[in-house]
Design a protein around this nucleic acid. Sequence first.
DNA 1: TTGTATGCGTTATCAT
DNA 2: ATGATAACGCATACAA
Lengths: 339, 339
Amino acid sequence: MVTITDIANACGVSRATVSKALNGAADVSPETTKKIRDTAASLGYFPNATARALKMGRSYNIGVLFSDATGGGISHEYFSRILESVKAEAERLGYDITFIAKDLGRQSMDYYEHAKYRSCDGVVIASADFQDPAIIRLAASEIPTVTLDYSFDSRSSILSDNVRGMETLVRFVHAKGHRKIAFIHGENTSVTQKRLASFRKTCADLGITVPAEYIRPATYHDPRSSGLATRALLALPDRPTCILYPDDLSYLGGMSELEKHGMSIPKDMSVAGYDGIPLSQVLRPRLTTYQQGAEEMGTEAARLLVGQIEKPDVWLPQQITVEGRLLEGSTVADINGNG
Amino acid sequence: MVTITDIANACGVSRATVSKALNGAADVSPETTKKIRDTAASLGYFPNATARALKMGRSYNIGVLFSDATGGGISHEYFSRILESVKAEAERLGYDITFIAKDLGRQSMDYYEHAKYRSCDGVVIASADFQDPAIIRLAASEIPTVTLDYSFDSRSSILSDNVRGMETLVRFVHAKGHRKIAFIHGENTSVTQKRLASFRKTCADLGITVPAEYIRPATYHDPRSSGLATRALLALPDRPTCILYPDDLSYLGGMSELEKHGMSIPKDMSVAGYDGIPLSQVLRPRLTTYQQGAEEMGTEAARLLVGQIEKPDVWLPQQITVEGRLLEGSTVADINGNG
DNA sequence: TTGTATGCGTTATCAT
DNA sequence: ATGATAACGCATACAA
């Protein structure tokens, strides 16, 4: 490994001068600077991030936290898109990314300890159980954090606009003439609560009364559980005309259940998803769904975190809401004529 | 931050003793060891990975390389499953994961430089253009590497068994009575070459002659291009009875194309995919496909890399082939009766 | 059994 | 404009 000492020897100057020249200090003559930089390049010198981090107390490394336990694993489309965009933006800003986990090897450590252990300059909490004391400890620590889809007090967060997303969907379905709208929702999280509240409020605003049995619980990203919920809805004496699913993947469970009943989409039942994953748009009929702005969320998360890291004095906690957009698809029938 | 110096002061011993006690050295009395460990715990001490890495020349950090440019991005099911399992196994072994990229901030560096910059103990090359000089440089360097789905000379690699996978599929289809089998393949990579070779060989072994026009190029993970290839196959005077797709996602493009032609699967056309992503098994009819052992590949990659890092003296380059399994599905019709 | 001294590669302070 | 020196936190060879 070539170090500044090697360059110093090659140029016949001190290590201090090399360091300064490389970092563009003003108090080094242009000639020596050039000479030093040239030999650094010719020697193939690269700084050692480890040594630099130790000295400066800044690692240019940000932690990313995915708690697989909550089903928000990396391999879900929505989260992997976020990860990809966080990574891209962080790298653009000169930061590397390290995963933060519980329990590294035989060391048992919590998230905060792990982040400190790796000297992370900040952490993006991408998916987690926000009731977990370990998450709360991290978010309450001196380490800059940005959370996604959840807000801690006095901390920055990026929020997918679940309220508007659900409202948009309901209004779209309503405009197509539907008045009997069912909603299969995911497990109880703050995201679910927002969607549920928005569903209820929008329906109320539109003058729709929603029977309790039209609202059914299921599990995110689990086609099977949504399939069962669908079956229950179909068993009702007064069936809905449209079913909203917790997410696009869950819709697939509903889809096959509907097919089992010999029902065709959207002729016999209208449906809509949530997420707008690529798959939803290659299905036929193309799924009506709300596409969350995952890329933008990741980008903003990285940007916000780095801002806080680099300018802590002027930093203020921010909640950024990222809007998505409706993908109209063709799974919602227009029943205005025969309403 | 609490350091060994704090513990040393608290215990009235030297930092060296603390370091030894914490690392379980034999030459420190049980009592002092206990005392030191207790106060370390009560003070909330955690080692500083940065300082340790600088001192020991070991970072306990492994790089993971995904080159998004080649379409092998993190957000593809197959790769995100690999990433997830590499991460899990690495963490189990006490290693953290950092992404390796080209160009960090305004620094332009190649993969090798990036890995050195972060003092990675090793790198898992998960998806990349293996012709890229930067990749070749990394794989030829002194840094331990493990590649996935590609083998460099004298380096370890984990290979999905593409030869067997394709053979299994073809034999399955053949057993169902099909003799006119078309293959839509992905862009030209070593994986594609293996599948193509295996397709040709298996067909030859089974006494099937494959017309040149039954083999069509497309792009991995791109339903549109496979849709076009499907259309071309349907335009042939002598249509195949079964189409093999480059991957499950690509099948969706074929699926909608077949539907456009009013053809039903598998009555009018049999099909099979490759990958075995969860989606393929919630589709109706359930897709016949070959599931690659992504989790096992990731796990083995991490294990192999750490083995090489920790026991370089007894290390030998290894090629581990991970078998997948056939998911039978029901998209291949049995046409033995009316053959 | 414990402590002292040194260095990993870098940056920063203060002399010169 | 340049250099000597110290320090970041830790581990280790060696001295006591």
